[in-house]
Every structure is written in structure tokens, then in C-alpha cells.
């Protein structure tokens, strides 16, 4: 199930953002009078993928939205980057839905950020978008409309669009949960090679997904929810589905989720 090693020529190394480490401290979230979590802390280490695993309704999506700047953090929540600069504008966000715009071609969807910021559509930019599409296995589909793609292909475009943003921190909210099992495994391989070396915070409710992609895995459970210590499974990413160690860890994670 391992993806072939893809060339990493896609990243403009001179411009590549240095991986960023982010810490969340004292995070608090109340919803309809109940406290979903309080005094919650989480560290997202630089250059690796942190998986945040938790059941639905635990507040993990809101936590991610706070980091993305889409939800106002409740005091006394503090979200800060290690370098001290504000996170605003340094985050790429990928949601459960592919969020492709149906009226734009695949290539234009990948270039959406530049379009929205009125950046000039330079040949370099377009070349990079094409290279990214090739990296996610969609070469030749540049001028197609999203409606002609399958669910898995659409999510591949979303990965390319996320990478096109080339931000120091990548946030993913259950990015593959809407896909069927086989497509999900393939997309995890694509994501693992595409996101190598970046700081990623990925939310998931699927222990297998966390174990395949996460360098560090935290389990978020309870009410008010707490984040457990990081689990650092051995082995290269993406880890093989049939690895016995991985299956044992999956059982362990399921126990932690239930507890």
C-alpha cells in the first residue's frame, strides 16, 4: 500500500517556509453552557505531523478552527507560534469536504489562493500548480471541472490546493473521512509524501489514519476533554496497514478513546 517515492521537486526550496512549531495553552471552549474543555494544552512540533484523535463532539474541530483563525479563541486560550509572530496568514486549511469551486477548472481551483489575493498569475505559479497536480496523480486533468472527478480525485485536488498555499502550518480536519476505505488509504499515501517535512496538525476520529500518518499522536477524550501524552509510533510514514505493531497500537488507541 506504500506510495512510490515521489520527487520532491514541487517545493520551491528557496522559498519554502521554515517549519513552524505551535503551542496551544489554557484552551477553553464552552458550548451551550457546558464546558467542552478547559485548560487544555497541545504542542504541534515543527516539521512533523501531529495527529489529534478524538470522538465526535469532543471539540477538536473547534480547537482546529481556533488555530486556523476561523473561530475566536475563548479566554484564557493562548495560541502562539514558537517564533512569536502571529499565526494569521501562515496557515493552510483543508476540510473534510474538498471545497472545490464548481465553476473553476481543476487548475484554477489549485490556484484559488492567488486569485483571491489578486496575485499575478505568473508562469512560475502555474508551473508549480501543474507540478503539484502531477504529484497528486492528476496530470492531464488541469482543464476539467470538479464535477467530472471522483470523490478521491477531488480530494487530491484539495491536497494540491493546500500545498499550493505553501504555508508553514497545515491544518487538516478529517480530510479523508468522506471517502471509501480503499480510496482513503491511497489518499493517505499521497498526503504522506506530499506533506513530508511540514508542520501538520491533523484531526481525525480514525485510529488507523492517525497511526498511518502521525509522527506524534494525541488522544483527546472526556468531558471536559483532555489531551493525552503523545504516542510516537515507530516506522516511516505512511506506515503499512498490515504492520502488526500498528495493529497493536490501534487496539491501544481504541482503548484510550473508549476510556
Amino acid at each position: 500500500m506504500n506510495a512510490p517515492e515521489l520527487p520532491n521537486a514541487v517545493r520551491p526550496n528557496a522559498l519554502a517556509p521554515a517549519p513552524l512549531s505551535v503551542t496551544v495553552t489554557g484552551a477553553r471552549l464552552t458550548y451551550g453552557g457546558t464546558e467542552l474543555f478547559a485548560d487544555l494544552s497541545l504542542t504541534v512540533e515543527a516539521g512533523v505531523t501531529t495527529g489529534l484523535l478524538g470522538p465526535s463532539g469532543v471539540g477538536k474541530t473547534t480547537l482546529l478552527r481556533m488555530v486556523a483563525g476561523l473561530a475566536d479563541p475563548e479566554p484564557p486560550t493562548v495560541i502562539e507560534a514558537r517564533d512569536g509572530a502571529p499565526l494569521h496568514g501562515r496557515v493552510a486549511y483543508m476540510a473534510q469536504q474538498d471545497l472545490l469551486l464548481p465553476w473553476l477548472t481543476v487548475l484554477d481551483n489549485v490556484l484559488l489562493g492567488a486569485r483571491l489575493r489578486h496575485e499575478r498569475r505568473s508562469p512560475d505559479l502555474v508551473a508549480r500548480a501543474r507540478a503539484l497536480l502531477e504529484q497528486v496523480g492528476l496530470a492531464g486533468r488541469e482543464t476539467d471541472r470538479p464535477a467530472t472527478l471522483s470523490g478521491g480525485q477531488r480530494q487530491r485536488v484539495a491536497i494540491a490546493r493546500t500545498l499550493m498555499e505553501d504555508k508553514p502550518l497545515v491544518l487538516m480536519d478529517e480530510p479523508f473521512s468522506a471517502l471509501d476505505a480503499l480510496t482513503r488509504l491511497r489518499l493517505q499515501d499521497v498526503a504522506a509524501s506530499a506533506l513530508a517535512g511540514r508542520t501538520v496538525l491533523m484531526i481525525t476520529h480514525d485510529p488507523l489514519e492517525a497511526l498511518r500518518l502521525g509522527h506524534r499522536i494525541h488522544v483527546m477524550t472526556g468531558r471536559p476533554a483532555t489531551v493525552g501524552p503523545a504516542l510516537e509510533p515507530p516506522g516511516r510514514i505512511p506506515r503499512a496497514v498490515d504492520d502488526p505493531a500498528l495493529l497493536a497500537l490501534q487496539a491501544e488507541l481504541l482503548r484510550r478513546l473508549a476510556g
Binding site: 483563525g69 476561523l70 476540510a95 469551486l101 484559488l112 489562493g113 489575493r117
Partner: peptide, 15 residues
């Protein structure tokens, strides 16, 4: 979701 995405991409309201 589109509006969220646009916000993280730093789009202005007009854009």
C-alpha cells in the same frame, strides 16, 4: 466552507 477556506487564504471581503 468556501468562506472559511477563503478566509484562511487571506481574501478580502470584496474578493
Amino acid at each position: 466552507g468556501w468562506l472559511d477556506l477563503a478566509r484562511t487564504m487571506g481574501a478580502s471581503r470584496r474578493s
